[in-house]
Amino acid sequence: MLLPGPQNEAKAVDDVMRFIVGTDLILFALVIGAMLLFVFKYNKKRHPKAVSIHGNVPLEIIWTVIPVLLVLYMFYIGWKGYIQTRIVPKNAMTVKVTARQWNWQFQYENGKQADTLYLPQGQPIKFLMTSLDVIHGFFLPDFREKQDVLPDRVTYLVLYPENLGNFELTCSKYCGLHHALMYTRVIVEPPDKFLAWVNSGVKDTLALPDSSQVKTERAGL
Protein backbone atom coordinates (compact mmCIF):
# COMPACT_ATOMS: atom_id res chain seq x y z
CA MET A 1 0.00 0.00 0.00
CA LEU A 2 2.90 2.34 0.68
CA LEU A 3 5.03 3.63 -2.13
CA PRO A 4 8.80 3.60 -1.92
CA GLY A 5 9.69 7.19 -1.07
CA PRO A 6 12.30 9.18 -2.93
CA GLN A 7 13.20 11.52 -0.07
CA ASN A 8 13.76 11.81 3.65
CA GLU A 9 10.52 13.56 4.46
CA ALA A 10 8.57 10.82 2.74
CA LYS A 11 10.17 8.34 5.12
CA ALA A 12 9.11 10.44 8.12
CA VAL A 13 5.56 10.56 6.81
CA ASP A 14 5.67 6.83 6.19
CA ASP A 15 6.76 6.22 9.78
CA VAL A 16 3.74 8.16 11.05
CA MET A 17 1.56 6.27 8.61
CA ARG A 18 2.92 2.91 9.73
CA PHE A 19 2.37 3.72 13.38
CA ILE A 20 -1.20 4.88 12.91
CA VAL A 21 -2.11 2.06 10.53
CA GLY A 22 -0.56 -0.46 12.93
CA THR A 23 -2.49 0.93 15.91
CA ASP A 24 -5.63 1.03 13.78
CA LEU A 25 -5.30 -2.64 12.90
CA ILE A 26 -4.86 -3.64 16.53
CA LEU A 27 -7.83 -1.56 17.69
CA PHE A 28 -9.94 -2.83 14.82
CA ALA A 29 -9.08 -6.43 15.61
CA LEU A 30 -9.89 -5.91 19.29
CA VAL A 31 -13.26 -4.27 18.72
CA ILE A 32 -14.45 -6.55 15.94
CA GLY A 33 -13.02 -9.59 17.69
CA ALA A 34 -14.85 -8.76 20.92
CA MET A 35 -18.04 -8.11 19.02
CA LEU A 36 -17.93 -11.43 17.17
CA LEU A 37 -16.99 -13.28 20.33
CA PHE A 38 -19.91 -11.81 22.28
CA VAL A 39 -22.34 -12.40 19.45
CA PHE A 40 -21.26 -16.03 19.38
CA LYS A 41 -20.95 -16.64 23.10
CA TYR A 42 -24.00 -14.71 24.27
CA ASN A 43 -26.31 -15.81 21.48
CA LYS A 44 -29.78 -16.34 22.92
CA LYS A 45 -29.55 -20.09 22.26
CA ARG A 46 -26.40 -20.44 24.37
CA HIS A 47 -27.19 -17.69 26.84
CA PRO A 48 -30.96 -17.38 27.28
CA LYS A 49 -30.88 -15.15 30.36
CA ALA A 50 -29.27 -11.76 29.92
CA VAL A 51 -27.42 -9.93 32.66
CA SER A 52 -28.02 -6.20 32.85
CA ILE A 53 -24.70 -4.58 33.64
CA HIS A 54 -25.15 -0.87 33.95
CA GLY A 55 -21.54 0.10 33.74
CA ASN A 56 -18.13 -0.27 35.22
CA VAL A 57 -16.50 2.98 36.16
CA PRO A 58 -12.85 1.82 36.32
CA LEU A 59 -13.20 0.08 32.96
CA GLU A 60 -14.78 3.17 31.41
CA ILE A 61 -12.01 5.37 32.76
CA ILE A 62 -9.39 3.01 31.33
CA TRP A 63 -10.89 2.98 27.87
CA THR A 64 -11.17 6.75 27.93
CA VAL A 65 -7.67 7.47 29.16
CA ILE A 66 -5.81 5.01 26.93
CA PRO A 67 -7.32 6.35 23.69
CA VAL A 68 -6.62 9.90 24.86
CA LEU A 69 -2.95 9.08 25.40
CA LEU A 70 -2.81 7.17 22.13
CA VAL A 71 -4.27 9.98 20.05
CA LEU A 72 -2.07 12.55 21.77
CA TYR A 73 0.95 10.51 20.77
CA MET A 74 -0.35 10.23 17.22
CA PHE A 75 -0.84 13.97 17.13
CA TYR A 76 2.69 14.50 18.40
CA ILE A 77 4.45 12.31 15.84
CA GLY A 78 2.20 13.58 13.07
CA TRP A 79 3.04 17.14 13.93
CA LYS A 80 6.75 16.44 14.23
CA GLY A 81 6.73 14.67 10.87
CA TYR A 82 4.90 17.52 9.26
CA ILE A 83 6.75 20.50 10.67
CA GLN A 84 10.09 19.23 9.41
CA THR A 85 8.73 19.36 5.87
CA ARG A 86 8.02 23.06 6.40
CA ILE A 87 11.57 24.00 7.36
CA VAL A 88 13.41 25.66 4.50
CA PRO A 89 17.12 24.82 4.32
CA LYS A 90 19.25 27.90 3.74
CA ASN A 91 20.84 26.47 0.63
CA ALA A 92 17.49 25.71 -0.99
CA MET A 93 17.11 26.52 -4.65
CA THR A 94 13.97 28.50 -5.44
CA VAL A 95 11.64 27.39 -8.19
CA LYS A 96 8.63 29.55 -8.96
CA VAL A 97 5.48 27.61 -9.79
CA THR A 98 2.63 29.20 -11.67
CA ALA A 99 -0.62 27.28 -11.98
CA ARG A 100 -3.39 28.09 -14.37
CA GLN A 101 -6.33 26.21 -15.85
CA TRP A 102 -5.00 23.65 -16.78
CA ASN A 103 -1.23 23.52 -16.77
CA TRP A 104 1.83 24.09 -14.64
CA GLN A 105 4.73 26.40 -15.37
CA PHE A 106 8.08 26.39 -13.59
CA GLN A 107 10.60 29.21 -13.53
CA TYR A 108 14.15 28.75 -12.27
CA GLU A 109 16.33 31.41 -10.64
CA ASN A 110 18.06 32.20 -13.93
CA GLY A 111 14.80 32.80 -15.78
CA LYS A 112 14.64 29.41 -17.44
CA GLN A 113 11.03 28.36 -17.91
CA ALA A 114 9.64 24.89 -18.41
CA ASP A 115 6.43 22.91 -18.12
CA THR A 116 8.14 19.76 -16.94
CA LEU A 117 9.80 19.96 -13.55
CA TYR A 118 13.53 19.13 -13.80
CA LEU A 119 15.31 18.94 -10.46
CA PRO A 120 18.91 18.25 -9.44
CA GLN A 121 19.49 15.23 -7.22
CA GLY A 122 20.44 15.95 -3.61
CA GLN A 123 19.56 19.62 -3.77
CA PRO A 124 16.84 21.06 -1.43
CA ILE A 125 14.24 22.95 -3.40
CA LYS A 126 11.84 25.65 -2.27
CA PHE A 127 8.78 26.12 -4.45
CA LEU A 128 7.07 29.50 -4.40
CA MET A 129 3.65 28.89 -5.86
CA THR A 130 0.85 31.07 -7.11
CA SER A 131 -2.18 30.68 -9.32
CA LEU A 132 -3.45 32.89 -12.12
CA ASP A 133 -7.10 31.92 -11.82
CA VAL A 134 -8.68 29.47 -9.36
CA ILE A 135 -7.30 27.29 -6.57
CA HIS A 136 -5.07 24.43 -7.69
CA GLY A 137 -3.33 21.75 -5.68
CA PHE A 138 0.39 21.04 -6.11
CA PHE A 139 0.56 17.32 -5.38
CA LEU A 140 3.62 15.07 -5.53
CA PRO A 141 2.33 11.61 -4.51
CA ASP A 142 5.79 9.98 -4.46
CA PHE A 143 7.13 12.69 -2.16
CA ARG A 144 4.04 12.61 0.16
CA GLU A 145 3.70 16.35 -0.27
CA LYS A 146 0.84 18.58 -1.17
CA GLN A 147 0.08 22.29 -0.97
CA ASP A 148 -2.77 24.30 -2.40
CA VAL A 149 -1.87 27.01 -4.89
CA LEU A 150 -3.94 30.13 -4.36
CA PRO A 151 -4.72 33.08 -6.61
CA ASP A 152 -3.22 36.39 -5.40
CA ARG A 153 -1.14 34.72 -2.73
CA VAL A 154 2.17 32.85 -2.61
CA THR A 155 2.38 29.52 -0.82
CA TYR A 156 5.50 27.42 -0.45
CA LEU A 157 6.62 23.82 -0.35
CA VAL A 158 10.01 22.28 0.36
CA LEU A 159 11.34 19.25 -1.48
CA TYR A 160 14.49 17.25 -1.03
CA PRO A 161 14.85 14.84 -3.96
CA GLU A 162 17.36 12.18 -2.93
CA ASN A 163 16.81 9.62 -5.65
CA LEU A 164 16.96 9.89 -9.40
CA GLY A 165 13.77 9.20 -11.23
CA ASN A 166 10.67 10.26 -13.04
CA PHE A 167 7.71 11.07 -10.79
CA GLU A 168 4.17 12.35 -11.06
CA LEU A 169 2.93 15.88 -10.40
CA THR A 170 -0.85 16.28 -10.37
CA CYS A 171 -3.46 18.85 -9.44
CA SER A 172 -5.29 17.84 -6.29
CA LYS A 173 -7.77 20.67 -5.93
CA TYR A 174 -10.71 20.60 -8.29
CA CYS A 175 -10.23 23.39 -10.83
CA GLY A 176 -12.73 22.85 -13.59
CA LEU A 177 -13.08 21.10 -16.92
CA HIS A 178 -9.63 19.55 -17.38
CA HIS A 179 -8.68 19.19 -13.72
CA ALA A 180 -7.84 15.53 -14.35
CA LEU A 181 -5.46 16.42 -17.17
CA MET A 182 -3.50 19.03 -15.24
CA TYR A 183 -0.66 16.65 -14.94
CA THR A 184 3.08 16.74 -15.58
CA ARG A 185 6.31 14.92 -14.63
CA VAL A 186 9.03 15.59 -12.07
CA ILE A 187 12.39 14.48 -13.43
CA VAL A 188 15.23 14.24 -10.91
CA GLU A 189 18.62 14.28 -12.66
CA PRO A 190 22.26 14.24 -11.57
CA PRO A 191 23.35 17.84 -10.78
CA ASP A 192 25.66 18.21 -13.79
CA LYS A 193 23.02 17.02 -16.23
CA PHE A 194 20.48 19.34 -14.61
CA LEU A 195 22.85 22.33 -14.81
CA ALA A 196 23.48 21.71 -18.45
CA TRP A 197 19.74 21.72 -19.08
CA VAL A 198 18.89 24.71 -16.92
CA ASN A 199 21.64 26.84 -18.44
CA SER A 200 20.76 26.12 -22.03
CA GLY A 201 18.96 28.84 -23.96
CA VAL A 202 19.05 31.51 -21.24
CA LYS A 203 21.38 34.45 -20.60
CA ASP A 204 22.18 33.96 -16.92
CA THR A 205 23.86 30.83 -15.74
CA LEU A 206 22.69 29.10 -12.61
CA ALA A 207 25.02 27.44 -10.15
CA LEU A 208 23.75 25.27 -7.35
CA PRO A 209 24.02 26.85 -3.90
CA ASP A 210 26.94 25.82 -1.72
CA SER A 211 25.70 22.96 0.38
CA SER A 212 28.80 22.67 2.57
CA GLN A 213 27.32 24.75 5.39
CA VAL A 214 23.73 23.68 5.65
CA LYS A 215 21.78 25.68 8.18
CA THR A 216 18.06 25.75 8.45
CA GLU A 217 15.58 28.51 8.98
CA ARG A 218 11.88 29.10 8.52
CA ALA A 219 10.81 30.21 5.08
CA GLY A 220 10.98 33.97 4.83
CA LEU A 221 7.97 34.90 2.78
Partner: peptide, 21 residues
Protein backbone atom coordinates in the same frame (compact mmCIF):
# COMPACT_ATOMS: atom_id res chain seq x y z
CA UNK B 1 -14.54 1.46 12.74
CA UNK B 2 -12.79 1.42 9.37
CA UNK B 3 -14.12 4.91 8.70
CA UNK B 4 -13.12 6.24 12.09
CA UNK B 5 -9.69 4.66 12.16
CA UNK B 6 -8.82 5.90 8.67
CA UNK B 7 -9.89 9.30 9.97
CA UNK B 8 -6.92 9.25 12.33
CA UNK B 9 -4.63 9.27 9.31
CA UNK B 10 -6.41 12.35 8.00
CA UNK B 11 -6.27 14.13 11.35
CA UNK B 12 -2.51 13.88 11.48
CA UNK B 13 -1.06 16.74 9.46
CA UNK B 14 1.89 14.74 8.13
CA UNK B 15 -0.20 11.99 6.60
CA UNK B 16 -3.00 14.37 5.64
CA UNK B 17 -0.59 16.24 3.36
CA UNK B 18 -0.27 12.99 1.47
CA UNK B 19 -3.88 11.81 1.60
CA UNK B 20 -5.88 15.05 1.39
CA UNK B 21 -8.08 15.39 -1.72
Amino acid sequence: CIGGLTGLLLGSVATDAQLHA
